[in-house]
Design a protein around this nucleic acid. Sequence first.
DNA 1: ATCGCCTAATAGGCGAT
DNA 2: ATCGCCTAATAGGCGAT
Lengths: 293, 293
Amino acid sequence: MHSTSDQYFLSREKLSNNLQQIIDTERYYTQFLLDEIILPVAEDIWSNFTLDPLKLLPFWRNYPPEQRGRGPIGTSVPWLELGEKTISSNIIKALGSKRDNITFPGLPTGGDIRFADKQVYIHLDVKLTGPNDNANEVVVPPNQVSGDGINWNDGVLNSTWPVRRVKSGEINYHFQPKLPPIYILDDNTLICLTYFFDAIYDVTGFGNHPIKYFELVCVPNGLLMFDGPKLANTPNLIIAGKDDKTTPDDAKRIRIRLEPLSKINNWRATKIKKTENGWIALHRNDNPELFSS
Amino acid sequence: MHSTSDQYFLSREKLSNNLQQIIDTERYYTQFLLDEIILPVAEDIWSNFTLDPLKLLPFWRNYPPEQRGRGPIGTSVPWLELGEKTISSNIIKALGSKRDNITFPGLPTGGDIRFADKQVYIHLDVKLTGPNDNANEVVVPPNQVSGDGINWNDGVLNSTWPVRRVKSGEINYHFQPKLPPIYILDDNTLICLTYFFDAIYDVTGFGNHPIKYFELVCVPNGLLMFDGPKLANTPNLIIAGKDDKTTPDDAKRIRIRLEPLSKINNWRATKIKKTENGWIALHRNDNPELFSS
DNA sequence: ATCGCCTAATAGGCGAT
DNA sequence: ATCGCCTAATAGGCGAT
């Protein structure tokens, strides 16, 4: 008879001593997501995202969502909800049809798309990036990244991580990852994997938001990021997020920069792009000039 | 050569003269959703919603979402996101596997789950109702209900509808439906159907939020509700929503009461409940005493 | 390039009457 | 039973420097 905390620390210890297993798992599921899920549905997503809202324009143009934020210039319509729905619906549909062992165990917070098999619990968050924003980073809240899970108090506790100002090197605030590095469910140890699916789009007119490309990002598990090799120390990988000063530190986001990330492992940032010959996936550092824009 | 507006008004006119076709379509898709989608996945949703978060409790209990609103009493954890994810993932997966002609045309606003075939565009919004809230109504924002689509100004325009105070009969505010009664996509006329999938749950401890039952609600299309028969006039069907006075009228929600609704057609409100013999679906007025609580 | 200012839309728990 | 008070979490557009 052993408690959940015993089981947890046993599993955590085993993985800590075999970090390559985590990396291999992250790489395997990245490939799975690319080959079996994203590339097969990319054309549908593209069409649902780029073409359909234009065809349907007269049926929503008088009641569009309002622009928000500090200095709206009025040209773009908030495309977040459209992007989230078209992308996650197509991905979930594909997940269901490609694998019969995918389940959706409930958690009160996490990424937009959450699913598990017997090896992993995956959080995949959908991000949208318009022409005025930076496509070389993802802005990540505490609930979408796993921590070191170093302590236990009726449950997993993560260390915080100091986010420094690039210029001065001063600590700006302490980031609090809120996902555990692993889950234990029905006696299976599930590695927590965190992905981001970014849709980079242009705005060429009212309701006309063509996709430029997608990017799949795999952020290292907490045991790699904030423990052991402490990849979070990679220069320029993590910088301050978009929150203002009134946001409590433990709710503040971080920016994860994709160039440093893709240098840790080139498969951690993969662009998915439409070509004359169909959709292709290219790791950032395999062919940088193709995406020089 | 005809414009979209010509096509729109032609289709609208045809349906206005054959309202039974709308009702039949609503009824058909209600049955489809119940028999082919919801009943087959009800057990999975129940398990993802009720059991898994308890099994996973140590992996989120130190970082739960905060309670919100006016007078939080602290017992319940916000269960909305968990409910939305577990329910919509399972439903989308089932939709993909049961029908091969389902697509997800992008719209910038609408229900949580949006999909289309060649006959209908369906908005299905997931609602959560805890023990301190009223399970006999759904609170519906303008983006989740269709209007009469009576006018055109580069696109469909809907009339507003006066919401009266029950006691005084005075007009409280004017509700602005924002979905069109029909869409035209690739020359197909798609009737806009609006559904609500309500999960009614109990709170029996921290993280313990067992499902009591689900309810599928079909709100009549705008041509039935706000035009022609003007079902919105049904006594006590529509009352004020939950917004405060600072909310602009055209963003205010309404409450749609389920007893009056189910008297319009008994299949418009259907409870889905777990029994010893599996999951059953029962229209509200078929067997009221079974759900006397 | 860094970093944070700033707000629309969402939702339902729960109180007041 | 009616109805509205009230706030956490989400997200990215865009400005300031």
